[in-house]
Structure formats: structure tokens, C-alpha cells
């Protein structure tokens, strides 16, 4: 047995510990607790300054996610065109994302772009940024809380509106029972999309799958279709899942129509071949491109677009009528 105990015991250990505890107590005496819920955003963001602008973009996408890659491309392109330094970072875990925001504040960046999948967890960090005079723009999700946290505007798509639009479109094509596929447990926005679809469509059933395991996604959709033949429409909330749903529909011999949120080149070819009805594109390229532009304009010209009202980037319906044009852009990673 290997042991790392030293040969001669020294009683000093106890004293050191006591000292540490005592020091801890002393330090606690000078500390401040977290405040209970209070509304009202931070102020202090003033346009102005010169020199090179640095913008930190901090998203909740996991590294390697196709959707967020387009946002990243948008932000970086805007940065190149406007001469703005853009740093993109991402963390799926809200507490890790909060720490990335603290990091950007410590670096004294000139502007901050944050996606808020879980606004409460980011509240203190975003307030801190706003209070220290860094202009903040929220993107993608968290529209309702954006102004409260002191952001100058929000750029994104209203999930419920987009969900309603999807449900409406499917209803118009004569569908009666919809399966809504949620691919990330714990993502509020996805639940909102299905809720939106339920409001305009009516009979909607949710199905939970795990996007990191495509085999399982396909098998579960197939299972759901086989066990309930009255399902005649499938709504997926992610283009990768859309491809799985198309295969599942084909394999199960179901007559269900598939529609999806968001685009990729697979979705484009499915729309062309008629296996997919339509895609709701939130044009996330704009969610990277616009905030960088807005922050540049805010600093150099004190502009706030729409007086700080949310700027909607979608939904744009992509179907057979316009898929050819949009498709060529999806391939180069900007749609």
C-alpha cells in the first residue's frame, strides 16, 4: 500500500486549519450577500470612445454546433468589414457562460453580445457588464428579460411567434395531428416553440429525444409514428433532427409531412425533393452580424435601432418557391 503520510506527525496542522477558519470568518465579515429579486437594469452605458472596438460574443451553443457556427460566421464577417475585433466564446452550461461574461468584463471589452437561454443565471453577470459601462446586446433567446438587465437591444426571433407560424402553416395544409420533437432536455426556447405550435394548431404531442445520439432520435420518431398512425405531421426544431425525421417517416411508411426550424444543406435538398414541406429560418447569420454592426454604430454614432425594441431576424419561410436561392447560401455557411 502506498501512502503519502509523512513520517513525523506535526501538531501544526490543526493550528493552520484553525487559522484558516479564523481568516475565513474575518473575511466573511467584510462580504456582501446577494440581493433578493429586484427589477431595474443597470445604467452607465455611454456611447463614445475611439480606437479599435473589441466585441465579445458569448453564446450558449456547444462547440461544433452547426447553427451557432453560422452566428459565429456572421459576427466575424461583420467584424472584418467594420474593422471590429470579434472574440467568439460559447458554453452550454449557464454557470460557465456567466463566468465567460465575467471574463469579458475583466478584459474591459468595448461591447458584449450574449445569448440568454437561461436569463436568471446570467442576470448578475450581465448587470455587472452594463454597470461597468459596457454596452450589451442580447441575441437569440431571452428577449423578455433583455431590457430589464440593461441591454441596449435584443436581436432574435420570438420563439412562440415562430411556433405559431409553423402550426398555422401545417394546419392550412390540412393536417390534424402534430408530433413536436424536442431535442434538448432543459431548453426553454424549444418548449416555447412547441407551445406556440399548439396554440395555432391544436392537437400537438411532444416527443423528447437526445440530439447527441442520432440513431436514438430516428428510432424514437419511428416508434412514435408506428404506435400512432393518426400522426400526420412532424415538426422538428433543429435541421439535424429534421434529417432523422425524414428517414423515420420513410422507414415507418407513414404519410406524415415534416417541417422544421432552421436550415442546413440537408434540409435544402429535402425541400427541393419534396420530402420536407418547409423550414422556418430565423436567419441566425443576422444574430451575429447585426449586433456587431449595432455596437459599432452605438459607439461611433450613438444609434440604437428601433429605440431598443427587439429586432426580429425571423421567421422566414423557406419552401419550394425560394429554396434554390437560399440553398446556395446555406452551403457557404451564412444561412
Amino acid at each position: 500500500m502506498g501512502s503519502n503520510r509523512s513520517a513525523t506527525p506535526r501538531p501544526a496542522g490543526g493550528r493552520v486549519l484553525l487559522a484558516a477558519v479564523a481568516a475565513g470568518t474575518l473575511a466573511l465579515a467584510a462580504c456582501s450577500g446577494p440581493g433578493a429579486t429586484d427589477a431595474g437594469g443597470g445604467g452607465g452605458q455611454q456611447p463614445g470612445g475611439s480606437g479599435e472596438l473589441r466585441v465579445a460574443v458569448i453564446s450558449h451553443g456547444t462547440p461544433g454546433d452547426a447553427f451557432w457556427n453560422v452566428v459565429k460566421n456572421g459576427a466575424e464577417t461583420a467584424g472584418k468589414e467594420l474593422g471590429v475585433q470579434v472574440d467568439y466564446n460559447a458554453a452550454g452550461d449557464p454557470s460557465a457562460q456567466a463566468k465567460l461574461i465575467d471574463n469579458a468584463v475583466a478584459q474591459k471589452v468595448g461591447g458584449l453580445v450574449v445569448s440568454m437561454a437561461n436569463p436568471d443565471a446570467l442576470r448578475d453577470s450581465i448587470r455587472k457588464a452594463a454597470d461597468s459601462g459596457i454596452p450589451v446586446i442580447t441575441i437569440n433567446s431571452g428577449e423578455k428579460r433583455s431590457a430589464e438587465f440593461g441591454a441596449i437591444t435584443h436581436v432574435g426571433q420570438s420563439e412562440e411567434v415562430a411556433g405559431e407560424r409553423a402550426g398555422e402553416n401545417l394546419k392550412q395544409s390540412g393536417r390534424t395531428k402534430l408530433l413536436c420533437i424536442i431535442h434538448e432536455a432543459g431548453n426553454v426556447a424549444l418548449n416555447e416553440r412547441c407551445d406556440g405550435a399548439r396554440r395555432s394548431f391544436g392537437d400537438v404531442q411532444n416527443l423528447q429525444v437526445d440530439i447527441s445520439n442520432p440513431t436514438d432520435v430516428q428510432a424514437r420518431i419511428k416508434g412514435a409514428l408506428q404506435s400512432d398512425s393518426s400522426i400526420d405531421a412532424v415538426l422538428t426544431l433543429n435541421p439535424q433532427v429534421a434529417a432523422n425525421a425524414v428517414s423515420a417517416v420513410r422507414e415507418s411508411g407513414s404519410q406524415a409531412k415534416v417541417a422544421t426550424f432552421d436550415l442546413n444543406s440537408d434540409v435544402v435538398s429535402f425541400i427541393k425533393s419534396g420530402q420536407l414541406e418547409f423550414a422556418l429560418d430565423q436567419q441566425q447569420y443576422l444574430q451575429g452580424y447585426l449586433p456587431v454592426t449595432f455596437l459599432k454604430l452605438f459607439r461611433d454614432n450613438a444609434n440604437t435601432v428601433g429605440g431598443g425594441k427587439p429586432v426580429l431576424t425571423g421567421p422566414q419561410i423557406v419552401d419550394k418557391s425560394n429554396v434554390d436561392k437560399v440553398g446556395s447560401f446555406a452551403e457557404r455557411g451564412t444561412r
Binding site: A27, C31, P34, A36, G186, V188, N191
Partner: peptide, 27 residues
């Protein structure tokens, strides 16, 4: 009915418990 639980900051005892676990120390 949702996938996250929030609202603990308006429950009794939040401030004192938060002092122990979530406060900040100025050094």
C-alpha cells in the same frame, strides 16, 4: 411543467442562505 426551476430569490430565507453560499468578498 417546464425544464427549469427559478424564483428562489423571492422565497423566505434567501438572503441569509445566500450570504453563506453566494455572497462576494471584497479583498
Amino acid at each position: 411543467g417546464s425544464v427549469q426551476v427559478s424564483g428562489i430569490s423571492s422565497v423566505d430565507g434567501y438572503e441569509s442562505a445566500g450570504f453563506l453560499f453566494a455572497s462576494t468578498v471584497q479583498i
